[in-house]
Design a protein around this nucleic acid. Sequence first.
RNA 1: GCGCCCAUAGCUCAAUUGGAUAGAGCGUUUGACUACGAAUCAAAAGGUUAGAGGUUCAACUCCUCUUGGGCGCACCA
Length: 551
Amino acid sequence: MIKQDITKKLNSLVNSYLLNKNIDESLKFSIEIPPKDINADFATNAAMLIAKKTKINPRLVAQELINEILNKMSDIVEKAEIAGAGFINLHIKNSVLYKELISILTEKEKYGKILNNNKKVMVEFVSANPTGPLHIGHGRGAAIGDSLSRILKHLGYNVTKEYYLNDVGNQMLVLAKSTEIRYRQLKGEQIELPEGYYQGSYITEIAKRLISEDRNIEDIDFKTESVKDILKTIKNDLEDFAVEFDNWFLEETIASVKDDRGQTQVDKSCEYFLSKGNAYIKDNALWLASTKFGDDKDRVLKRSDGRYTYLASDVAYHKNKFERGFSRLINLWGADHHGYVARIKACIQMLGFNKDNLNIILHQLVSLLRNGEPVTMSTRTGEFVTLKEVVDEVGKDACRFFFLLRSPDSPLEFDLEIAKKQSSENPVFYVQYVNARCSSIVKESKNRKDIIEDINKIDLTLLNTKEERDLIKQLSTFCDTLFLSEKLMSPHCFTTYLIDLADKYHTFYEKCRVLTNDSNLSSARLKLVESVIVIIHNGLNLLGVSILEKM
RNA sequence: GCGCCCAUAGCUCAAUUGGAUAGAGCGUUUGACUACGAAUCAAAAGGUUAGAGGUUCAACUCCUCUUGGGCGCACCA
């Protein structure tokens, strides 16, 4: 939490500086890690921003601010100097780093955890229709949603992970019909499966099961039976991918379940729109006036034949989420749904909620490669690559790590051969190798009697080389990475962070031998190694990737 | 036709949302195992950030236009 501490203290310095100049507003300055070649721990642009407001020369402001910093922040700051156009470069005291190291070692898996933040957040993801197995696109959504939930939990939010199951509507009829036709075909009837029906072989599997049960066709509810089987495979696939949901929300509960007055939640939200003048009847259908709130055209809620549209359910579903007390909703959608964003945001506003409390993360497509060559996929014929196939081939850990490697809005290339490689080409192994190396040092240290265990008796000031300092600094940015992930709404910050950490560790490893003849130095360095283990564990855990002691 | 997203090293991608000389990995070239795991490290080469304007002390980042790609525009879900 080094950066957070400095920001807080600097902020109060800046505020009182501004008050002295009779400016009563706060300033959003930045505290950053300066570029590689600049010898400093942190840099701030505060002076330049003040200069703009006060019309004073930035370097003059910087000098005045530096005096204040040296005066009031001497417990943290060792040295401060002006650089460039008016940056202030800060060198922090080593004692600050050692304190951070102790926090990591004592708080362990709780390091960086924020308490007393009980804001209820819902992360809704995957939500694939129960009409077929999950494919790799769903896998990316699953990995991002699950990991983001873990990160938000670490930041203290009260997170609920939910899967919205569309078990109502047209597609269910098509599904039921598809299974029935396969069933009849297996019984020897000469019928074709029409275009637009589900072609996948899993449908035939369901039909085969039904045949083996030897029931009368009149007694079979093809929809229920199909959904049952498909849902079972979806749940299994997610379990193998270490993704667990807190709640499975059935569309039925808002679209079919009726209250005392015989109304569903969908009925009620449509009625609400009508009462507010946000819906109207045209051509015998019920239309939502979504253009009022930024949508490009009005949308149908209830068809002229009396059936509701998907949108009507979805609106009622979002209303239901807010009514359950969630103050912030996060939805993960495939990028092909982007056209839907303006529509649902408009609906949120019409329901009287703040559209900024609905956060929609769109993730781009995954393209699968094998040795650099694209693996062909076609949803039309049902020959798409399933999540299960990929997980079975490369393993859950590599799969999750790869899905989380890039920010959601960049398309992902996933090379199956690289994900399976056990070499530096594969970032998963690069990171796990750090843990393996650390573990072996710890194991080796057990053979020595001169190692000091008690952190209070260890002289941490022996950790004073550049490599050690850089490594500790990298460890301490774990917290910054948490906040960054939240701000960017993306777990990819952690894959990048862990790769950087691995890099710093390997450099340290080459330059600084841990177990030496000097027992004081060995003990101090061993503590550093132990804190690397803690952070690697915490980081991989946020990604849902398991840790290997040996490889 | 309208709208959304994207374009960064040979390849795949970062860049702490406006900060200093744009960074990693792979690939290429060179070097390092006689103590903790070489699945590693050190170093070199590689860039007009698609192009043109603009805003700013400061632009990969914000605005406008152009070019090239992906996706979406149902009384489907």
